[in-house]
Design a binder for these strands. Sequence first.
DNA 1: TACAAGCTGTACTAAACAGTACAGCTTTTG
DNA 2: CAAAAGCTGTACTGTTTAGTACAGCTTGTA
Lengths: 188, 188
Amino acid sequence: MPRTLLERPDAVRALAGVFRRRGFESSSLSVIQQEAGIGRGSLYHFFPEGKTDMARAVLDQVGDWFEDEVFAPLRSATDAAEAVSAMTKAVADYFVSRENVCLFAAMTLGEEKETFAGEVKAYFVDWVDALAALLQRGGLNAGDAHENALDVVAMIQGGLIITRAYGDESTFLGVMERVERRLLAHLS
Amino acid sequence: MPRTLLERPDAVRALAGVFRRRGFESSSLSVIQQEAGIGRGSLYHFFPEGKTDMARAVLDQVGDWFEDEVFAPLRSATDAAEAVSAMTKAVADYFVSRENVCLFAAMTLGEEKETFAGEVKAYFVDWVDALAALLQRGGLNAGDAHENALDVVAMIQGGLIITRAYGDESTFLGVMERVERRLLAHLS
DNA sequence: TACAAGCTGTACTAAACAGTACAGCTTTTG
DNA sequence: CAAAAGCTGTACTGTTTAGTACAGCTTGTA
């Protein structure tokens, strides 16, 4: 095997940063080169189909992180209250350290919304369903569990929007605190 | 005065449709011409500064609608419960008939987020503050009123995201129903 | 030390882009 | 009915875009 100066996952991480900061559509190849510090040659080496490939790789990586750190723990948890606190903490830390941007939410708008509709839907369905199942195990009936899970995920996503609009990340943290409190109240 | 075949407000309405459907950044001038049915000449006649002018005009028009139909009624209402129901109905009807897209929320991402940061912040601040003031008049203390107002606006915005991801507008309508129920519960 | 294979910068192409200029059209006003 | 003024299509410019081609570099392996 030859050298591996830059690994694909590193490239994906750098791309994710650019897409979060500038949005997918206004990240031109020249901007990506500059901000991610990756040349055109490397970019097309790792992502032969261009920007679409890059976006897919970024969404995959984010989706994997949520699967491992959020959805799977929700599904396998035995203590519902503990799982709720772990989820809110993980999610809050994640978005605060990622410029308060959810790339899946961003993909519900713009040109390529159809291209990634499947992945985007799966992300939200997985999250809502995993949380709903946990709430059901915590004592809620199926309907209430699903409605509460949906409302909570919506509140988190809306909280991100408002905190970006306000330019003040404490707003998002406040939303996350109340999300946790609300879920715990339902479980007691 | 000479003829007025196409008025500026009509042009703005057409532009809003294009921006909602395709996103601001991927609406090129040729796409706008085609989908809005307005030629290049007319576009630069009405919006001399180009796309930035167009976006500003669209945001202004949407902002005016919300001011007149949502924020002002919230501020001047005497019956809090009635005002809450009026707001949820107006907002639900608005977004359902506008492809479940909030253009102000869309402007918190992408290239021009800084250009319109002021307008975007004002929109959310006006909404949250008007609703918070109403809840306070309805008996909540200042802190609870503000938190609930913020959470509700977040839930609405997040509901739009999830309904677009699900490709099923009944999800958003469900969120709006529970928003209304929750607010009414706080007022009783 | 030499080969193999992954990685990378540079130069290039064709298409799409935002924005300009302007002649000419249409309709209201006097 | 003529003039004024708003509106509109077309042709154009220079720039930026995504994507390609490829020579050459770097490093692990034999």
